[in-house]
Structures are given as structure tokens and as C-alpha cells.
């Protein structure tokens, strides 16, 4: 009887989740569960051998994603997912390395690695769930918080201007850049498939809902309210100039696939090229 019951609730994605790791730590109304599910679907549909997939996360609520996924998965330190991913990716040109982490992790403490990873056109995919602040540590402002946003370390409203992540990634050299909100599950999935299959540095920003530490301080009490707010403001614009996609408090949220450049050599391409040159050079003494 219980066996049957258990069978009945098995989800087709269960094999991609670590046995015994669910329930997850994420709050009700958080979009991280559904985003993780979309990533699983995308990996499945990409047709890539699951042995060739590695998932890397930094630290944060989003950073917990790696630990739930049943691939080779690495939960690293705060901000350092990208250099870990680069070291891992260059050891096997066929390996698909996917970084899943938060806005604070990737754009604040790890910002240096983000811009240099993009500059190198390293052969990795970076999925950044931007919930506009630091969820895990209780809702402090971060580098994507907009001016005037209320957070625990901005009780009078944020005094700084935010990074526009697609613009940042693009201007640093990323060759695939896209943004969706957590609501756009179907298009997000298609984009993530393309991003994983893309050769070079692909960057996908997902605007996520964090009711617990963002929403309730900013008149968006429920996760659904945040998503509804996204829906109202979303403007679909494939090919949009990623230097003009900045998000403000109430302005439009431009989503779509902004950039796809196919002819730029990747870091791995160039490393392999250097190997060929080096192997052909004559030996010289020490």
C-alpha cells in the first residue's frame, strides 16, 4: 500500500535529484524550486550525457541548488563558483559545467571572477538567480538592489545604484546573454538548453522571487505578488541591447535572448591551440 503511494508521487525528475535531499530548505513562495526544476528539464532535453554535466554553486539560498542536483555537483565558497568551474571545465573539453548561484555571490564577492570569466569566454554556463538582495543572510542590500529598495542594511532605502547583470556580462565578453523572470518557465528552459549547448561563456539571469527577505520589506508580501509584479512590467525583446536593460523600481523589465555570438574562440579552444603549438616546439633546456 505505502509502496504504491510512494510510486504514485514519484516525479519524472526525481532521478535528477539527490536521493534523500528533498525537502529542500527554500521558503514557501520562493522561486528557487521551480527554477531548479526548469534547469533539470533543460539539462534533460539538451541531450547531453549526464556524466558530462557538472553543477557548481557558491554560497547563498541559490547556491544550495548544486547539492540537490544528482550530477557531479560542487558547493564551493561564497563567490568562487566561477574559478572552480573554469578549473574543472578545462580538464575535459566535452564537460558541460553549469554554475548556479545568486546575485550577491556572483556579482558582489565573486564579481571579479564573473567579469574575468566572461572576458576569457570560458566554456561555462552561468545561471544567476537575481532576487535583488542577500536572501540567505537575512535580506541585506546587494549589488543588484535598486535605488530606494528597503533591506535590513538599508532601512531608509538603498543609497546605491544597481548592476545591470546582462549589460555587465556582455560588456566583459560573454558570448551568450539572456534574461527571464522566474515566471517564464518555458522560454527560460529553451534559453538554458541553448546556453548549455553554446560554446563559450553563456550568462542567463533569472529574476527570482524572494518573499521572505525582499518582498515583505518592499510591499510584495507573497511570492506570487512578486511574480505578478514581474508579469506586469515584463517587456519581451529578443536581441535587445544589453547595455540598455537596467532594472529600476517600477520601470519595464526587458527579457529575452539578448546576445548570441558564435564565432569568438573560447578559452578551451585557445588552450588546446597553445598545446598544439607547444608540443610542436623543440625542447629547450631548463
Amino acid at each position: 500500500m505505502t509502496d504504491k503511494l510512494l510510486k504514485a508521487v514519484e516525479h519524472p525528475s526525481d532521478v535528477f535529484l539527490r536521493p534523500g535531499r528533498i525537502p529542500h530548505i527554500w521558503c514557501p513562495g520562493c522561486s528557487l524550486g521551480s527554477v531548479t526544476n526548469v534547469i533539470i528539464e533543460a539539462i534533460k532535453q539538451s541531450g547531453i550525457d549526464s556524466k558530462k554535466i557538472s553543477i557548481i554553486s557558491g554560497i547563498g539560498c541559490t547556491g544550495r541548488a548544486a547539492g540537490y542536483l544528482n550530477f557531479d555537483s560542487f558547493h564551493t565558497t561564497h563567490g568562487r563558483a566561477i574559478p572552480f568551474a573554469i578549473g574543472l571545465s578545462v580538464t575535459d573539453p566535452e564537460r558541460k559545467v553549469i554554475v548556479i548561484s545568486g546575485d550577491g555571490d556572483l556579482a558582489s564577492i565573486g564579481g571579479n571572477h564573473l567579469i574575468h570569466g566572461a572576458r576569457r569566454n570560458a566554456d561555462i554556463t552561468v545561471i544567476c538567480v537575481n532576487n535583488f538582495q542577500y536572501g540567505m543572510t537575512g535580506g541585506q542590500v546587494g549589488p543588484t538592489s535598486y535605488e530606494g529598495q528597503f533591506q535590513t542594511t538599508a532601512p531608509y532605502g538603498n543609497v546605491e545604484h544597481p548592476f545591470d547583470l546582462p549589460g555587465l556580462a556582455y560588456s566583459c565578453g560573454a558570448t551568450f546573454v539572456a534574461r527571464w523572470t522566474a515566471l517564464d518557465v518555458r522560454r527560460m528552459k529553451e534559453t538554458i538548453i541553448e546556453a548549455i549547448l553554446h560554446k563559450g561563456f553563456s550568462f542567463v539571469e533569472i529574476l527570482g522571487s524572494c518573499p521572505t527577505t525582499y518582498g515583505r520589506r518592499n510591499q510584495l508580501r507573497e511570492g506570487l505578488e512578486i511574480l505578478e509584479n514581474f508579469r506586469k512590467r515584463t517587456v519581451l525583446k529578443h536581441g535587445a541591447d544589453p547595455t540598455k536593460t537596467e532594472i529600476s523600481k517600477d520601470g519595464p523589465i526587458i527579457v529575452g535572448k539578448f546576445v548570441e555570438i558564435k564565432d569568438k574562440s573560447t578559452l578551451t579552444d585557445n588552450l588546446l591551440k597553445v598545446q598544439r603549438i607547444a608540443k610542436a616546439t623543440k625542447a629547450r633546456g631548463l
Binding site: 572552480f84 578549473g87 574543472l88 578545462v90 580538464t91 571579479n112
Partner: peptide, 20 residues
Amino acid sequence: LQFEDEIASIVSILGASWGG
């Protein structure tokens, strides 16, 4: 690989080690 700093350097070698 020459990295952007020593933090990336140490983390990259951990990643490479897990690549075998």
C-alpha cells in the same frame, strides 16, 4: 592559466583536481 587573483587561482586548482 593566469587568473585575476590568488583566490581564483587556488579555487581553480581545486576544480581541476576534481576533474582528475
